[in-house]
Simulated assay, not measured.
Amino acid sequence: MDLKSLELDAAGLLSEVMYGHGFAHYGYFPEGPPETLSAAAFGAAQQAYFERLVGAVPEGTKSILDVGSGTGANARALVKRGFDVTCVSPSVQMNEMARRKLPPGTEVIDAKFEDYEGGEHDCCLFAESFHYIELQPAFDQLARVARQSIVIFDYFRRPGFAHGGGTRGTHAAFCEAVEAQGVFAIESDVDETDAIAPSFAIHDHIKNAHVAPFVKRFRSAFRAESRLKAWAAEKVLGRALDKFERASSRSDSFPKEHEYRLVVLTRREA
């Protein structure tokens, strides 16, 4: 398992234990940052994110393909709203978590979206998963799978800010790809960066004020107790612990480097 997958697994598990919903996405703060930067405020904002997401699903939608379905929290909530949901994700670990929480009969498929071989769905839903997929393969597959609409709640790279890994493109490149393909049209496209950005202020506060000092104390105490065990632990977990111990400033960098948008596309009439 790579470090990113481990972080997402941990976020989903923590959310499940603390708030009962298990969401692994960012929070949604339409009224701006909360007065108190707390985990409780973030959990409530994750629920608000889901409400914003499901509110964008076009009327008349019955079946949804949840792309990059993570731990299954969104899918579970969608099923409770009456949707027929199929999940697809390449993360075997997260898919196992999803299968344990989803109702019997809800299909969870171990595959990348580009390799998905299932049939059509009324709507394809991407909650912080679209940026992992190259544009052309994504739209080629969407032309086959999305019967009516596509809902994307995700971030795009701002021009001039490259990423060392991943396939995150700019919003302009996305719009050009939509127009070039001609199968779908943009129904709505809302910049929600300001409403998402407080997530990072909370992340920074919790990490810098609580997590990093704890990790530092833990490593120091473990080394004092057993140098051999500490050495073995560092070989396995050192890189992850380094990341948790480093100070975070994403509340400053994220809005400068990204724009977070809620985009709804509908299939053009033949």
Rank of each mutant, 00 (worst) to 15 (best):
S5M: 09
E7K: 14
A10G: 03
A11T: 11
L14K: 07
S15Y: 05
Y26N: 12
F29S: 02
A41H: 02
A41L: 04
Q47W: 12
A48Y: 01
Y49N: 12
V57T: 11
S63C: 02
I64A: 01
S69W: 06
G70K: 04
G70N: 08
T71S: 15
N74F: 13
N74S: 13
N74W: 08
N74K: 07
R76L: 15
A77I: 03
V79H: 02
F83D: 02
C87S: 04
C87W: 06
S89V: 10
P90L: 03
S91K: 03
S91L: 04
V92A: 15
M97K: 11
P103T: 07
V108N: 02
D110C: 06
K112S: 11
D115P: 01
E117K: 13
G118E: 09
G119N: 06
C124A: 14
L125G: 04
F126K: 05
A127T: 15
H131M: 11
H131K: 10
Q136V: 13
Q136K: 14
P137R: 07
Q141F: 03
L142T: 08
A143T: 13
R144D: 01
V151H: 06
I152R: 00
R157S: 14
G166K: 06
T167D: 03
T167G: 00
T167F: 11
R168T: 15
H171K: 02
C175W: 00
C175M: 12
E176C: 03
E179D: 12
Q181S: 11
Q181T: 12
Q181V: 05
A185L: 09
V190Q: 10
D191T: 06
D191K: 04
T193F: 08
D194M: 10
P198L: 03
S199H: 13
I202W: 01
K207I: 08
N208Y: 10
A209L: 03
F214Y: 15
A224W: 09
W231R: 13
L237E: 07
A240Q: 09
F254N: 02
F254Q: 10
P255R: 07
R261G: 05
L262R: 07
V263N: 00
V263R: 00
